[in-house]
Amino acid sequence: MIPSIPQSTLFKSSFRLYAFIFFAFLMAPLVVVAVFAFNDSMFPSLPWHGFTWDWFFSDSEPKLGLFHDPQLYQSIATSFLVATCTTVLAVALAVNNAFLFERSTFRGKSILYMLMLLPLVIPGVILGVSILIMSSSIANYFDDVWAIDIELLRPGLTLVVIGQFAFITTICTLIVAARLRNFDLSLEEAALNLGASKLQAIRTITIPYLLPAIIGAAVISFLMSFENFNTTLMLVGSDSPLTITLYDRLREGATPVINVVSLLLMLASVVLALGNYFLTGRKSTAE
């Protein structure tokens, strides 16, 4: 079962066949989504009517291309906005948390660490719903007692950012903390000995060291936010991010323009993730 143990060719080739079928299974849905983006037909299905770029660039109904479909490209912009806000918040808090958990000692640290991991066990739907309940309760309270309507606490993009921030922070913290754990403290001490202040040492020595992990966390956070559906669905208001728009379109009956969006989404996320994977090493990405 390992190269040093002789095995029959049948055994080896059946393993190889199994692996082949497995990867075909893994890639099949992604491949069909990509292929049908170019089908010159109203439906993303066979028969094949020939190759076309219409679903990207056509500017007239019925084959309205992505770049002329305001509903779609506006929702992409919305997703960008949400993902950027979430990433900034999550990464900032993650760096803070990493220093807290790796550098300080205080009572109750391990309990706090466990609590910090909690969002990983809460299903996305529940997380979204619970934040919705709480913010609505607060909003209702203000409305009843002081007759102030706080628009921010009603379903909408702010709540979407808050909901995503709630669980993405945990993942970012794990990535940044893992790198800080391997930091050689003597480097910082050398800076202190050479006359730097504590803050200067952290800014000039520790933060540059952490940078790959920070970038890695930011990429992961951006992707997770951009692609999140469950939590977003519960908190969304009138402006829908891309995944919500796609979902609505899917239920109405999809046209190949959905494939075009999906294809671009796939390309962007695979390029981002692969780049991140090879730049920052496999360890932090695989978590």
């Binding site: 099949a28 849905p29 992604l30 993303p44 066979l46 559906f229 979902y247 899917l250």
Partner: peptide, 27 residues
């Protein structure tokens, strides 16, 4: 890395792929 790729793609896209494959008029 091949195993990781589908995970980077949105769940919505993956499920949509299965819909194209498996529906009545599907592949």
């Amino acid at each position: 890395v091949l195993c990781l790729i589908p995970f980077w793609v949105s769940e919505l896209v993956r499920t949509y792929g299965w819909m194209i494959l498996l529906r009545e008029s599907g592949v």
